[in-house]
């Protein structure tokens, strides 16, 4: 018999399932449009919150579930898109990077310690939820469009201020939730 590497309890599974639902619900929030027509959606905050609140393992699991229901055809992505459409668009790497980035947020948060600290939580969201997510998204964008690297970075830079703002906010929210529920754990 294979020894389970991921020892998940029923509660872990339920937390993952419900957090995937929270991220889907965040897609329903109206988006804010920055000057130049750059949309900011609340959804990418979801992956930062999943990693920072549930920890690396459960956060990545929650985002994997979210990916799967989106791929299966539920229009849960911001703007009512489905996962297949997202994978086949230049921003698909950002979508597929959700579980990876959530795991990174969780791991960095764990390394920094003290989950109730807003500064540390924001830093984890910034490095994992923006840094690692861009590492997944930018190469995919380049492969999809064949654009020169500098042009892609220039386009991505339009989204950067909004993403930094989201990371700071996600860190504040995660720290507040951890202070309210210390029993949550961040395994």
């Amino acid at each position: 018999m294979v020894r389970p590497v991921l020892s998940l309890s029923v509660r872990d599974l339920v937390l993952m399932g419900l957090f995937a639902g929270v991220v889907a619900a965040l897609g329903l929030l109206p988006k804010i449009t920055l000057p130049l027509g750059v949309p900011i959606t609340a959804q990418s905050m979801g992956l930062m919150l999943a990693g920072a609140i549930l920890g690396a393992r459960r956060g990545a699991g929650a985002m994997l579930l979210f990916l799967l229901i989106a791929l299966a055809g539920l229009p849960v992505l911001a703007g009512g898109r489905t996962g297949l459409g997202a994978v086949f668009s230049p921003t698909g790497g950002f979508f597929l990077g959700f579980p990876v980035a959530a795991a990174a947020v969780g791991l960095i948060g764990q390394a920094l310690g003290r989950p109730g600290s807003p500064i540390r939580a924001s830093l984890a969201c910034l490095l994992g939820g923006v840094g690692v997510l861009y590492l997944c998204g930018v190469p995919y964008w380049i492969a999809m469009t064949g654009q020169p690297v500098l042009a892609v970075l220039g386009n991505a830079a339009l989204f950067l201020p909004g993403d930094i703002l989201k990371a700071v906010l996600a860190g504040l929210v995660a720290a507040t939730v951890h202070r309210g529920l210390p029993a949550l754990g961040t395994r």
Binding site: L13, G17, L18, A20, G21, A24, G61, L65, I69, V76
Partner: peptide, 12 residues
């Protein structure tokens, strides 16, 4: 977990 997520999207 997938069934749970699909069921709870409208609830959330």
């Amino acid at each position: 977990a997938l069934g749970l997520t699909i069921r709870f999207v409208p609830v959330l």
